[in-house]
């Protein structure tokens, strides 16, 4: 190989490099887009998880919408009150008040030991598949199938499958964005405001005898909680007791009388979660 070829190629590459560099420089000036510095500032305070709970496809899009006045300052559900205040101060306004904090609750207690099995689960890799093709091993048609679609959906690492084979929500990490709610094919994950309240941790709306065959901790719709409730705060809806949070005074009688231990106190703000 002669030295000439090397020189030629070096020169040609140099020229090309100079030319393209020049073009980039010119075009960046000509087509410069003026970006509001506020967008960058808002992006800094947002959680950056792109969870989509605000209704926009990601944090950047939401930040742009806020600056353009299309979205309110308190739109970021994952960030909560803190983030809303920060965004408001960047925008020079103030937020109207409290954003209630939501957390996800799995309305099923039927883990590996509690639920009755009548098949061998095989060939399923997600809850969606197992639910659609009935590849789960449990009898219950309503409860958790335990393949962890919610775990996969959570961008905040707040849900994990626990020892019982049931998803456990970490209330400190959960932002209430609702991605797990969307992901659950059985619709047993629901969002609740983060206060102390009694919930029925069962979603089986079959009759008592059928629930008995399916799960040890399933609500058998016996109605004792309704009878014993001093506040008359409990009513049946689809064979599941629903507790009226306005009437309930958290006495806990319903939890102690429940024969299958389906009711439980959840989302205690001051106390540690049971």
């Amino acid at each position: 190989m002669s030295i000439q070829i090397i020189i030629y190629s070096v020169v040609v590459l140099l020229c090309l490099g100079l030319l393209f560099g020049l073009m980039l420089g010119v075009f960046s000036k000509v087509f410069h887009v003026k970006e509001d510095p506020k967008v960058e500032e808002i992006k800094e305070v947002l959680p950056g998880a792109n969870c989509g709970a605000c209704g926009y496809s990601g944090c950047t899009v939401y930040a742009e919408a806020v600056v353009q006045g299309k979205a309110t300052c308190s739109g970021c559900i994952a960030g909560g009150q803190d983030t809303a205040d920060k965004i408001a101060s960047i925008m020079g306004t103030s937020t109207s008040g409290n954003i209630s904090r939501n957390v996800a609750v799995v309305l099923c207690k039927g883990g590996k030991e509690e639920s009755v099995k009548n098949a061998i689960s095989k060939g399923a890799s997600s809850c969606k598949m197992a639910n659609q093709l009935r590849l789960y091993d449990r009898v219950c048609r309503y409860g958790c199938v335990g393949f962890g679609d919610c775990v996969e959906a959570c961008t905040f690492d707040a849900i994990h499958i626990g020892e019982k084979g049931l998803p456990i929500v970490d209330n400190n990490l959960c932002t209430g964005c609702g991605q797990c709610v969307e992901a659950c094919p059985r619709n047993i994950i629901k969002l609740f405001t983060y206060t102390k309240r009694v919930l029925t941790l069962c979603s089986n709306s079959d009759t008592g005898s059928m629930v008995r065959k399916a799960c040890k901790v399933g609500c058998i719709s016996c109605g004792i909680c309704i009878k014993k409730c001093p506040q008359k705060a409990i009513v049946f809806k689809d064979n599941i007791p629903v507790i009226d949070i306005d009437k309930c005074d958290l006495c806990g009688i319903c939890i102690t009388v429940c024969p299958v231990n389906a009711l439980s106190l959840r989302l205690a703000l001051s106390e540690k979660d049971e």
């Binding site: 060939g123 890799s125 659609q132 093709l133």
Partner: peptide, 20 residues
């Protein structure tokens, strides 16, 4: 497809899921 898969992927289960 499932019968022949050397990696034992339940191919048909995936196809059924996407179909429905």
């Amino acid at each position: 497809c499932t019968y022949n898969c050397p990696s034992r992927i339940p191919v048909l289960n995936y196809i059924r899921t996407s179909k429905s």
